[in-house]
């Protein structure tokens, strides 16, 4: 079983890297660009089990994301 955990900054957190990418895209001529936020994802494979999703949630909350500044979202692949 593979789960994908997406992590991105919460709304309102200033991410200079996203800002720089956004500015570059604008400079490339894509003037319709409104917002851009960078994130990351992890693909985690675990053996088939009943509480698999719960475990992934715990890993995401306790390690992969920092709840002060980041959100996470889990999807089953």
């Amino acid at each position: 079983m593979i789960y994908r955990v997406y992590i991105n900054y919460k709304k309102g957190i200033l991410d200079p890297e996203s800002e720089a990418i956004k500015k570059t895209i604008s400079n490339m001529g894509f003037k319709s660009l409104k917002n851009l936020s960078k994130g990351k994802f992890f693909d985690i494979e675990i053996s088939e089990k009943k509480n698999g999703l719960k475990e992934i949630e715990k890993i995401s909350k306790d390690l992969l994301s920092n709840p002060v500044i980041e959100n996470f979202k889990i999807i089953k692949k």
Binding site: I13, L14, P16, E17, A20, N66, V68, I69
Partner: peptide, 17 residues
């Protein structure tokens, strides 16, 4: 200490990167 929640907040990348 912030990552293990003994202290509040977090330390992000410096503003000037």
């Amino acid at each position: 200490l912030t990552e293990c929640n003994l202290l509040d907040g977090t330390l992000m990348n410096n503003k000037n990167q």
